[in-house]
Amino acid sequence: MSNALGAVQARKQAPQWRWPLVWVMLLVVSVVGMPAAEPLFHWIEPDARQVVYDRADFYVLLGRHLLVVGIAAIVTIVVGVLAGIAVTRQRGSDFLPLVGQLASLGQTFPPVAVLALAVPVLGFGTLPIIVALMLYGLLPIVRNTLAGLQGVEGDIKTAAHAMGMTPTQILRQVELPLAAPVILAGIRTSVTINIATAALGATVGASNLGDPIIAGIVNGNMAYVLQGALTIALLALAVDSLFELLQRKLHSRLSAP
């Protein structure tokens, strides 16, 4: 009996893994096999001598891109969620209106402008793009953490309190699990936007997947632009579908009896 149930569940879960796997595979294939596709790019750009970007290997560029986005994501998740938790506690509730306003205001800062303002302070290189990504990615996370924690019903918290839970226990065992889907959605938005925005770092001397695009625009070589754009789009789709998978898992865990 339990075997049959398990089989049904396994069959249901199989398609969930399909899209993330497809995108990750495509990403790996495109990164490793980019030089092999040279004839194809020759057909796109017949006049150019060089058709495959070769100043750095694509997996190196991909690694740097992931590193930049990853560092920014870790910092923003830690800071954003902690800030969201802090201002929804009673001790920090004085800061709640300001932080809420700031979270909605922050979306109006264009990433290019943030990047341009970070360069005079931090100089050229990888640091300004990480800072710009952190500033830009922080606000969706703070906003969603606030929305998620405020969306937990007061009755549930009261019940937890009446059961003898301490405020820390209420936060960890009641509020955060209930707010997790909304917080995760914020993290997904933040990371997906940042993968695309990180390409701008190539304009301030940070080497990543934006490099082929900039080189292609400057030299008028469409093949370079295509290679950079394809890899970034595949990366964004892969990460996005992984987040979707995570959200589904979370959802099924929360709604399980």
């Binding site: 993968i195 390409a199 625009i217 754009a229 789709l237």
Partner: peptide
């Protein structure tokens, strides 16, 4: 949705050719 995942930089570049 797919269009939004392409970085702006790339979309601008891709339209050149």
């Amino acid at each position: 949705n797919f269009l939004q995942t392409i970085p702006s930089l790339a979309l601008f570049g891709l339209l050149l050719a």
